[in-house]
Nucleic acid binder design. Structure first.
Lengths: 203, 203
DNA sequence: GTCTATACGCGGATAGAC
DNA sequence: GTCTATCCGCGTATAGAC
């Protein structure tokens, strides 16, 4: 909690009552932590309020709804960063490698929280918007061949399928596999959507 | 999975009070209908009980939990049938075509219900088991190359990614696309996981 | 304006009387 | 076996104290 109001151990900040606008940031910090830790369904409004040291009604009063609080606190982007900037021919493997990197546990947490909240309309629309903005817009103009937007959207869908199996379903076969094999195999399948193999028998 | 108990169509069974063991089947029929219609979260135990014409407490008393009722009534298989039996070289496109077939709206309903219930451990394990039994077991022995089980599991993940984007996220780009294009493009990407080199070595 | 207290209507699940 | 009554937790709303 970097936004402490001149208090020593911020972890025990739930005891004192922060005044003024500091409660907003206290709620936001607690929401960020609990959404990441327990997911959307697992983090109740009451638990967030308790962690922030405020009344549960304040959470709704300040943010309108749990869904709005989620959208305001949790970064819907998964921090893809500069992965798409490199050469187009290897972007498939780089994408998979990015999400499989064990030094990025936040990605796993965010994905689980997002997937759990996806049945709320505003969150769903935000994910669609994010896909269009982060992946389709920068990548589609660089793609050769027909239907570039569709193919980027399908590549994102394919990427989501892997995250789903790994982080939500936790399939033992894929979980136990060596990451390099998954990166090469699955990355090349994604690559096929973006830069189809230059054989001439595609119709 | 739907083991019929020699009962006719009990759609109007909500009016009369079934006695004895008939209540079980009434609850099961109502659960099947409502889970398909509204999904796991949308179909409450109280609504299922009302549809079946019984007390809500009976539902839990007979089946133990909502999750157990779901597992007993909803067919966790998506009815893949004989799609995997054909030639290995085109199974990718056939899989996508099967799930995109507009004459199969039940598939869409079942997938939505399953995905919504996937955060329950027993449902999650059932999905893992189903993947292993329905896809990995029959397909992996037929695959050339290394890591056949992993590659089938990844293909299932990829398929799930498409269903997710289509049925849950309802991405406008993919939804608006022509089905034949999606079948060919995405099917070939799946195919790459199963038979890696498309032109060179034929089985 | 900010916060507290209380409460409504939902959800799944349980105990115990008929 | 069936139902009545109830419990606890959820998201949310509101009246009113500071």
């Amino acid at each position: 909690m970097p936004y402490g109001c001149a208090v020593t151990k911020t972890s025990d900040a739930r005891r004192l009552r922060p005044a003024g606008l500091a409660t907003r940031t206290a709620i936001e910090d607690a929401a960020r932590a609990l959404f990441a830790e327990r997911g959307f369904d697992g983090a109740s409004v009451r638990a967030i309020a308790a962690e922030a040291g405020v009344d549960p009604a304040l959470v709704i009063r300040h943010f309108g709804s749990k869904e709005a609080l989620f959208l305001r606190t949790v970064d819907t982007s998964l921090g893809i960063g500069t992965v798409l900037d490199g050469p187009l021919e290897t972007v498939g493997r780089r994408l998979v490698a990015y999400f499989l990197d064990p030094r990025r546990p936040v990605i796993r947490q965010r994905y689980v929280a997002l997937a759990q909240a996806a049945h709320h309309d505003q969150v769903r629309e935000e994910m669609i918007r994010h896909t269009a903005e982060t992946y389709v817009a920068p990548l589609a103009p660089r793609l050769p061949g027909p239907h570039p937007e569709l193919r980027v959207a399908l590549a994102v869908a394919q990427l989501g399928g892997l995250l789903n199996l790994l982080f939500l379903q936790r399939d033992p076969i894929v979980t136990a596999a060596e990451p390099e094999v998954v990166i090469a195999t699955y990355g090349d399948a994604i690559q096929r959507l973006l830069t189809p193999v230059p054989t001439d028998e595609d119709a």
